[in-house]
Structures are given as C-alpha cells and as structure tokens.
Amino acid sequence: MLGFLTIFAAALAGFGGLGAWAIAAAAIALASFSYSEHQQLYRRGQELGLTEALRATVVRSFLNALMATGGAYGAGMLLRLLHG
C-alpha cells in the first residue's frame, strides 16, 4: 500500500509543479520499501555469497522505482497542462 501511495505522491508532485527532485525522493522511498519487504532474502543471499547478484538486484529495483515515479510525475505534469 505504501508503494502505491508513493507513486500517487509522485503524480501529485508533478501536478503541483514541484521540482524533479520529487522523482528521486519517491524512487528512493520505493526502493527502500522493496528492500525492507525482502530484507531476509538479501541477508540469506549474502550468507550464500551472492553479493554481486544482490547488488544487481538492488540497482535494478532502484531503476524500476525511478521509472515508475518518473512516469507518474510526468503523468501529473501532463494533467496539469491539460487542466489549464
């Protein structure tokens, strides 16, 4: 639920005309939520010596979060332009 609220907040930030820093802040929040949900798996992977794969997973998770929040921010900006 927090992830959806974060994406919605990014859309509201775009609609409200906040700076592009809102995209990065929301992406960090989304990636943090993902990490906290799967923290046990990351810990277990480190114990098994899968550090390189875990790093790649964290980077991909952040990039996915960045794309999701960037898209929501862009949609919010578009709605602001169409609104008036």
Rank of each mutant, 00 (worst) to 15 (best):
A72W: 08
H83Y: 02
Q40A: 14
Q40W: 10
R60I: 14
M77D: 06
H83V: 13
R44C: 00
L81D: 01
Q39N: 07
G49M: 08
H83K: 08
R55W: 13
H38V: 07
G49W: 03
R43V: 03
G74N: 05
R80K: 11
A75R: 13
G74H: 11
F62R: 15
R80W: 02
Q39Y: 12
R60L: 14
R80F: 12
Y73E: 04
A53F: 05
L48R: 14
L48G: 05
G74Q: 06
V58S: 10
G84C: 04
L63G: 01
G76T: 06
L82C: 11
L41G: 10
G70H: 07
M67L: 14
L54A: 02
L50Y: 08
V58Q: 14
L66C: 09
L66Q: 05
G70Y: 04
Y73T: 12
L41N: 12
L78N: 14
M67P: 06
A65W: 10
E47M: 03
T69G: 13
A65F: 11
A56H: 11
G71S: 13
G70S: 07
Y42K: 03
G71V: 05
F62W: 02
L50D: 07
V58Y: 00
L81F: 01
Q39V: 06
E52Q: 12
E52C: 01
L63I: 13
T51C: 04
R44N: 08
R55P: 14
A75G: 09
A53V: 04
Y42D: 00
Y42L: 10
H83N: 09
T69S: 10
A65I: 13
L50H: 01
G70N: 11
L63A: 14
L78T: 15
T51G: 15
A56Y: 12
L63C: 04
S61Q: 15
T57Q: 09
G71Q: 05
R43T: 11
L82S: 09
E37K: 15
G74I: 13
Q40E: 09
T57A: 15
M77P: 05
V58H: 06
Y73C: 03
Q46T: 05
A75P: 10
G49I: 10
Q46V: 00
L54P: 10
L48E: 08
Y42E: 02
A65V: 00
T69V: 07
H38P: 08
A53P: 07
L82Q: 03
R80A: 11
T69R: 02
E37R: 15
L79C: 13
G70F: 05
G74L: 07
V58A: 05
E52W: 07
Q46E: 15
R43C: 01
L41P: 00
R60K: 09
L81R: 15
N64V: 09
L66K: 10
R80M: 03
A53L: 01
M67T: 00
N64S: 04
R60D: 15
L66G: 11
G45P: 08
N64D: 03
T57I: 00
G49S: 00
R60E: 12
L54K: 01
A75Y: 06
R43W: 01
E47H: 01
V58W: 06
A75W: 11
L66W: 02
M77I: 10
L50I: 06
A68F: 05
A68I: 05
G74P: 00
L63V: 15
A72Q: 02
